[in-house]
Amino acid sequence: MMRWTPCALMPDAATDAELSVISLDVPGTFEGVRWALAQTLQHLGEERYSVEERGTVELVLAEVLNNVVEHAYSGRDDGKIALEVRQTEAGLNVRVVDHGRPMPEGGLPIKPLSQPSDDLLSLPEGGFGWFLVGQLAHDHQYRRVDDCNCLTFRVTVG
């Protein structure tokens, strides 16, 4: 089993303007992602975040983390994902770090979605994930440093 070593992209300690919501080592499997989402949602109080806001956070995190499982860690189940969520005045700052394969084109594949046609057979069955991240998250930044992928973004809720 691969050892999980922190890399240069691990976050600094939370500043005064930030409040740490959660910091997790997530198993790089779809079940691991489910667990991480449940943990994170538990830490987002229902008095501060509406049902819709909680749904937005859950959806964005699901897309980003499942993408790591499916592509960066494709074909292996011993990967780990470091998830860090901090609350600020401007929303939730999220950082996701993994040791998997880099993004194929060195950046996030966020593209506009074409208007789906009425022709049943031409409907897309995929490609929705990064589009949703692009719609729901802001200031996304992807960096590859050594053997780490580091993705940061902000979700304007709370």
Partner: peptide, 26 residues
């Protein structure tokens, strides 16, 4: 086309996914 699939009773966050991806229009 002979057995069209229709959706019913979407909860709020499920409806949002269909709206954002514009799949609600088809």
């Amino acid at each position: 086309d002979d057995r069209p699939l229709e959706l019913a009773a979407l909860t709020v966050n499920v409806a949002a996914v269909f709206r954002l991806t514009r799949m609600e229009s088809v």
